[in-house]
């Protein structure tokens, strides 16, 4: 199938890239736009490493194909530099040793930010339930859960 122009907004910038309809969004971001912060793990929607924001809500970029992205607004991990919630999460991930190899981290952070904003009253059990779609093979999740709980507590205190 021939490549066709796909127009989408990525991290606030309008982009037009040539892609086959079958190219998935994670490959499009990494290969065409050189946004390699989005990591590819399982490539069938299970591991969560490739989670990005699509039209304001987290989604798996590996099972979303280029054609379907036409006209969408995408925000990758590179697009959160100036975001205060993400800044607090980065601090907390560091303080709580919530990453080792870093492979799952971009997806974890996008999911974590969604938990913090959508579920401000979440307790540890809920955070663990909500994190079930993001696999980490290093940390045992303890640090990640604690980092998210730390940011939730900070925000409830202010």
């Amino acid at each position: 199938m021939t490549r066709r122009p796909i127009t989408l907004t990525v991290n606030g910038r309008a982009e037009t890239v040539l892609a086959e309809p079958r190219t998935h969004l994670a490959d499009l971001l990494r290969g065409e736009l050189l946004l390699t912060g989005t990591h590819i793990g399982c490539e069938h929607g299970v591991c969560g490493a490739c989670t990005v924001e699509v039209d304001g809500a987290p989604a798996r970029s590996c099972i979303l194909h280029a054609g379907a992205c036409e006209g969408s607004g995408i925000r990758t991990i590179e697009g959160f530099d100036a975001d205060p919630v993400m800044a607090a999460l980065r601090e907390a991930f560091s303080a709580e040793h919530a990453l080792q190899c870093g492979y799952c981290t971009p997806g974890m952070l996008v999911t974590a930010r969604d938990i913090v904003l959508r579920l401000p009253e979440a307790d540890e059990a809920r955070v663990r339930e909500e994190l079930a779609g993001n696999l980490c093979r290093c940390t045992g999740y303890r640090g990640i859960v604690h980092a998210i709980l730390r940011v939730l507590a900070e925000r409830r205190a202010t």
Partner: peptide, 26 residues
């Protein structure tokens, strides 16, 4: 036909589904 693509998407990647054309209903 494809709705949200959360089942068809993985099936496409795994090549369990190989349609010639996908109609995105969203």
């Amino acid at each position: 036909p494809m709705a949200g693509g959360q089942s068809l998407g993985p099936m496409l990647n795994l090549r369990l589904a190989q349609p010639e054309r996908v109609a995105d209903l969203r």
